[in-house]
Design a protein around this nucleic acid. Structure first.
Lengths: 228, 228
DNA sequence: ACAGAAAATGCTGCATACAGAATACAAAAG
DNA sequence: CTTTTGTATTCTGTATGCAGCATTTTCTGT
């Protein structure tokens, strides 16, 4: 089975920029993706021996990666019983969205103050690209660009702590949002909200952008609510 | 030398609920405290061999603990060169405070809605206790109760994600705040703000509590600014 | 004496080995 | 047939060993 499940390891790389990434670091990303994409569903025990063999790594870096993810809140450490993928209740999700909403509102305000014109233009470009994907019906790319836009706005706020906190919550929620496939009319509404966002950003209208971001997030929640 | 530097381990505990804590978990708390209290100052390299010997543990659980703290943002992982205690710039601190302010404002609003009367009474008790410590000039206990009160209000908000994010930032800032020894008049101002907070909480005045919390945090920053 | 290169040392990164705890299973007693 | 207890297996938790990279020191040439 798992022929190519293992992480690519160059036993002896030819030339090239060598291997600068630590294994535990690679594993963090890999496991995170596995959790987000549902390869590891909530409640699943992370079996060190089995999982390690499946990925072609030993237990040590794997355990280190798990500890990292535990701090991120994606897995839960149970003493003497290993780690399980954290399961979020409806209230948990709602709580996260409440905080995320507040953070995005803050990000909107800060972005209007701190962003460079070039930065705003980049977000606009992402947005236009996303609209194209929307029109083409490409849900996956739409979804990815959507995330990118929100992250980009946070980046424009130029606040490292804000970016950190936002990133953590975004990651925790990705698993949920990924499932959310809204219908055509709701999808259109989401795109319209995005358009509003960009316009507000370009006008550097703090209050407006903040308001739209907050509303957008809560609407997004309404759209996928049923699937949780 | 380090006779009692090592973590207490009961080789065979007497009665009692046995030892349910994993070593790496204990190490996380221990290292965190060492960083906050300045035993490990910013820029210090976390030498696995040396530190492990000093604490009486092997490198494996120590490394796991370091990975956990890295995710918390207290240490920085440098590939092939280990971990160093993260150094925060003035802007970093300001950024964190901005976010923390927003989170506390949110906590205030939510707490006014969700808190039980008993919960509010507990915070009031903490506050009264803190005022006693203030009058007695007991800075350390005052400081601890101060932190407890802020955490307690966040708890009253009954939002796990909020508590998480707040906790992370609070931890990162503890190291800074710990240094801040304000003068008598500023100290008095801080106590007065706390009094305002409690009153607003007891009145379940969302807007007021939120406003005071935000103001309090920024004032706290002004008070210690010079020491960073 | 100084600059560059090469060797040596020390540390991290990863793998493996061992010990203790938890669980599952089976057998026996009620 | 159900419940309980003893045993065996499996998995986690911790220690140790080995290899590769970084840094520092030393040697050599100018």
């Amino acid at each position: 089975m798992n022929e190519n499940t293992s992480l690519e390891r160059r036993p002896d790389g030819g030339p090239g920029p060598i291997r600068r990434t630590a294994l535990h670091d690679t594993l963090v990303s890999h496991l995170r993706d596995m959790i987000i994409e549902g390869d590891l569903s909530p409640g699943t025990r992370l079996h060190e021996g089995q999982l390690g063999e499946q990925l072609g790594v030993s237990r040590t870096p794997l355990r280190e990666a798990i500890k990292y993810l535990a701090s991120e809140g994606l897995v839960e450490l149970v003493p003497s019983r290993g780690a399980i993928v954290k399961r979020f209740s409806g209230k948990d999700v709602h709580d996260m969205l409440t905080v995320l909403q507040t953070l995005e509102e803050l990000a909107g305000k800060l972005a209007c103050e701190a962003a460079s014109d070039a930065g705003i233009a980049e977000v606009r470009a992402l947005h236009d690209d996303m609209v194209q994907r929307y029109k083409a019906g490409d849900r996956l790319q739409y979804y990815k660009l959507n995330q990118q836009i929100h992250s980009a706005i946070v980046q424009l706020a130029a606040n490292a702590a804000l970016a950190d906190m936002h990133g953590v919550l975004q990651t925790r929620l990705k698993r949920i949002r990924f499932i959310g496939h809204e219908g055509p009319e709701k999808w259109a509404a989401a795109v319209a909200e995005h358009e509003e966002m960009i316009v507000a950003l370009e006008a550097r209208d703090k209050a407006k952008l903040s308001e739209v971001l907050g509303r957008h997030l809560m609407n997004a929640w309404e759209r996928v609510k049923t699937s949780v």
